[in-house]
């Protein structure tokens, strides 16, 4: 059984709805920290965290510099910042956009894979570009668990399709199946590969 230490969820176009549905399906005592990287305009402030906070029992807030991971609940990458992962805390960066995105899903997934190896669960959801594909492959390579939303039923297929072909994920799941799968994985159960 692997000790799951961080879940990274990457989403772009259509992500607000999709991430909200996942958060609505996680219980209030869910113990693994969840980090959400959602593409959006840079001047939206912390609007997204406020909206997602209402979707489920877990408290949701934006990442602050050097936030510790333990007991973090649900964190959202701030608009205009990349989030990088160290073994026990998070770092922020305003380095250039990566594939037109800041926050970039690839940056966070790669750095999470680097810092936490098999402790990472990476999830790539709906979106209209290919951010996340390289990062999810890194998660897979370092022994983490990769989940991709089924591109056939995602609002926009491009992003999950790119992640599916680059990362060979352990699970390609319907949106409604993802929260139960995360609960299973957090409990240390090994679901069968899709």
């Amino acid at each position: 059984m692997t000790d799951r230490r961080l879940i990274v969820i990457g989403a772009s176009w259509g992500g607000l709805q999709a991430v909200g549905e996942i958060l609505a399906g996680l219980p209030g005592d869910f113990a693994v920290p969840v980090l959400i990287v959602q593409h959006r305009a840079e001047d939206t402030g912390d609007l997204l965290a406020g909206l997602l906070d209402r979707r489920g029992p877990l408290p949701v807030r934006e990442v602050e510099d050097k936030d510790t991971l333990a007991g973090a609940g649900v964190l959202v990458a701030p608009a205009g910042y990349h989030v990088l992962v160290e073994p026990d805390h998070l770092e922020l960066s305003t380095e250039a956009h990566v594939r037109f995105s800041r926050p970039s899903i690839d940056v966070t997934l790669e750095s999470a894979a680097d810092a936490l190896g098999a402790g990472v669960i990476g999830v790539v959801l709906t979106g209209a570009n290919d951010d996340g594909a390289v990062g999810l492959a890194a998660v897979r390579r370092r022994g983490g668990f990769a989940i991709v939303q089924n591109p056939e039923t995602a609002l926009v297929a491009t992003m999950p399709a790119a992640a599916r072909s680059s990362a060979a994920p352990q699970a390609v799941a319907e949106l409604s199946e993802i929260a139960p799968l995360l609960v299973q994985l957090a409990d240390g159960e090994a679901p069968h590969a899709a």
Binding site: K66, L84, E86, E91, S93, E95, A115
Partner: peptide, 9 residues
């Protein structure tokens, strides 16, 4: 310096 971003660069 903060390590993750330094390591990346």
């Amino acid at each position: 310096y903060a390590r993750a971003s330094l390591r990346r660069r």
